[in-house]
């Protein structure tokens, strides 16, 4: 009995995740393709959709919540955060430096 209830709950979470993920993707494409939005306004919408997408994946697919975060999970998240910060931050630093020096 309990199993069935848990199964239902998980299924609901996954379905919710799928719907939200598809929706956020569709919105991103739609603002680029169908609206006249341009420049920083457009970027912020896209960044926002991206950030929400990450959270949807964490919550609905990876079952990570702040409340009962296992210590190992937290370590892994922090580590991932560090590596992504290094890669993304470093990329900006390098490419902006090149752009500035090459007049691009």
């Amino acid at each position: 009995m309990n199993d069935v209830a848990a199964y239902r709950r998980t299924l609901r979470l996954y379905t919710l995740g799928l719907v939200l993920a598809v929706l956020l993707t569709a919105v991103s494409f739609a603002v680029v393709g169908l609206t006249a939005l341009n420049g920083p306004g457009l970027w912020w919408v896209l960044y926002g959709c991206g950030a929400l997408q990450v959270m949807v994946h964490f919550r609905c697919f990876l079952h990570i919540s702040l409340a009962r975060s296992h210590r190992h999970d937290l370590w892994l998240l922090l580590f991932s955060g560090l590596i992504i910060a290094l890669m993304v931050g470093g990329t900006f630093w390098v490419l902006l430096s090149q752009m500035a020096r090459m007049g691009g």
Binding site: V94, S97, Q98, A100, M102
Partner: peptide
């Protein structure tokens, strides 16, 4: 970046 030192970023980088 040590694989592309010669590709135009600043000396500081």
């Amino acid at each position: 970046l040590h694989h592309f030192f010669t590709m135009g970023q600043s000396a500081g980088v």
